[in-house]
Amino acid sequence: KRPMNAFMVWAQAARRKLADQYPHLHNAELSKTLGKLWRLLSESEKRPFVEEAERLRVQHKKDHPDYK
């Protein structure tokens, strides 16, 4: 399984919050909304998630050196 990218790291927590706020939204609508919200974030707001995704990528490479 591939490591999560920055969006997926962020969306993991954001999806729970959004689903709690809008329990009537279908998963497809949640995903579209999350995409729009992510694009509205500034680079500095995204930075911690980009850094975490990079950490996960490096760890994955270490754990699975033959993964392509």
Rank of each mutant, 00 (worst) to 15 (best):
E45H: 04
H26D: 15
K68A: 01
A14I: 02
R57H: 10
R15K: 11
D66Q: 04
D20G: 07
Q59R: 05
D63Q: 08
V9T: 09
E29K: 15
N5A: 08
L30A: 06
P23M: 13
P65W: 05
P48T: 10
K62Q: 08
Q59M: 05
A13N: 12
N27Q: 10
V58H: 14
A53C: 03
F7I: 14
Y67E: 15
E52V: 00
L18N: 00
H26W: 06
A28M: 09
G35F: 03
A11K: 00
E45W: 15
R16C: 08
A11P: 00
A11M: 07
F7A: 04
A19M: 08
L56M: 11
Q59I: 05
E51W: 02
S42R: 09
N27Y: 12
E54T: 08
P65H: 07
R39M: 07
N27M: 13
V9R: 14
E29C: 15
S44G: 10
H60W: 07
V58K: 13
D20I: 12
K68D: 02
M4C: 00
V58Y: 03
R15V: 01
H64W: 06
S31F: 03
R2G: 02
R55D: 13
Q21R: 13
P65L: 07
A11R: 00
A14N: 13
Q12W: 00
A28K: 11
F49C: 09
Q21V: 06
D20N: 05
H26A: 13
E29F: 15
P23E: 15
D20C: 04
L37G: 01
K61W: 07
Y67I: 09
E29H: 11
G35L: 04
M4W: 13
E51S: 04
Q21G: 04
A28I: 08
M8H: 11
A13H: 04
E54H: 02
L56V: 10
L40N: 15
V9P: 00
G35M: 04
A14E: 15
H60E: 12
Y67H: 12
A28C: 13
K1F: 01
R39D: 05
W10P: 00
L37R: 11
W10Q: 00
K17F: 03
S42K: 13
H26V: 11
P23F: 09
D20T: 09
Y67W: 09
L34C: 02
H60R: 08
K46E: 02
L40T: 13
K61E: 04
H60L: 07
L56N: 11
R2A: 03
V9S: 12
N27T: 09
L30S: 03
V58L: 09
L30P: 04
F49P: 11
L18A: 04
K17Y: 06
D20H: 02
R57K: 12
L25S: 01
